[in-house]
């Protein structure tokens, strides 16, 4: 167990293993993305209230829900950095932040485009929307903090603390629609009955899109982390060898 844990913390081991995973992850993502997008755009029935704007849900919901996974992931990686000083954990924490920022930004943007015709406004100071905006600024804060501190170790510690503190916002975002009267509707409960609200025709393609976007997130995180490994380990023999061997 401890051997495995120590091995996992080795950037070189992660670099080599993730290189083997990537083609499979790419294949799975492409498949799910093609099926999900085709289904969402062509086969999902028009909603009785919202018409074709329901198709926006198949982008908005996966992106928004995966943006909520970023802060907890960054907080766990930060805790590992603080306790075990594992180098890889901090590299992952560093690479999650910009991805989380983009996911949160896209969730806010698609939500605004959806809200404009349906609610009659692209923005409201509603608990769900406001807490999501706070998450956006927390990501900006983490990225700014990292770039403000020169020493890699000190930056790692500072960002770890901020990630752990900022993760409090995630349950607030999640439950905001239940705790307060909001313009944003609460989470839907799915039904297996085709003749009931939220039938499989609506949620199966959504599940496929969530899977596809999750894979996109994982691939993007792996790619960025591999770059970070090369940069931080550039003086080690294995990276020098890798660079002299590479084509470009």
């Amino acid at each position: 167990m401890w051997v495995w844990f120590a091995k996992l913390g080795s950037p070189r081991w992660f670099y080599e293993l993730s290189g083997k995973w990537l083609p499979w992850l790419y294949a799975a993502m492409t498949l799910l993305m093609l099926v999900g997008l085709t289904w969402a755009l062509l086969f999902v029935p028009e909603d009785y209230q919202q018409g074709h704007t329901i198709r926006i849900m198949y982008v908005h919901v996966p992106v928004a829900s995966i943006s909520l996974a970023c802060f907890p992931l960054m907080a766990v990686a930060g805790a590992i950095t603080l306790v075990w000083k594992m180098k890889l954990a901090d590299m992952v924490a560093k690479c999650v932040a910009p991805i989380g920022l983009w996911f949160t930004g896209l969730a806010l943007a698609t939500g605004a485009i959806w809200g404009q015709p349906i609610w009659g406004t692209w923005w409201a100071w509603d608990a769900r929307l406001t807490s999501m905006l706070i998450q956006f600024f927390l990501f900006v804060g983490v990225i700014a903090l990292r770039s403000a501190i020169e020493s890699t170790d000190a930056a790692a510690k500072a960002c770890a603390v901020l990630a752990i503190v900022g993760a409090i916002n995630v349950p607030i975002i999640k439950y905001s629609v239940e705790w307060w009267n909001t313009l944003h509707q609460p989470a839907s409960s799915i039904s297996f009955d085709s003749a009931a609200p939220n039938p499989p025709e609506v949620w199966v393609p959504l599940l496929i899109m969530i899977g596809a976007v999750y894979l996109l997130f994982i691939i993007s995180l792996i790619l960025r982390t591999r770059n970070e490994i090369l940069i931080r380990e550039r003086r080690s023999q294995w990276v020098t060898d890798l660079i002299t061997r590479s084509q470009s």
Binding site: W119, A196, P197, V202
Partner: peptide
């Protein structure tokens, strides 16, 4: 000065709604 529409969390097709 402004009226916003709020919708619930139930999504379904026109046909399902009519049947219900």
């Amino acid at each position: 000065s402004r009226v916003l529409a709020k919708h619930d969390e139930n999504y379904m097709s026109v046909e399902v709604k009519a049947a219900m």
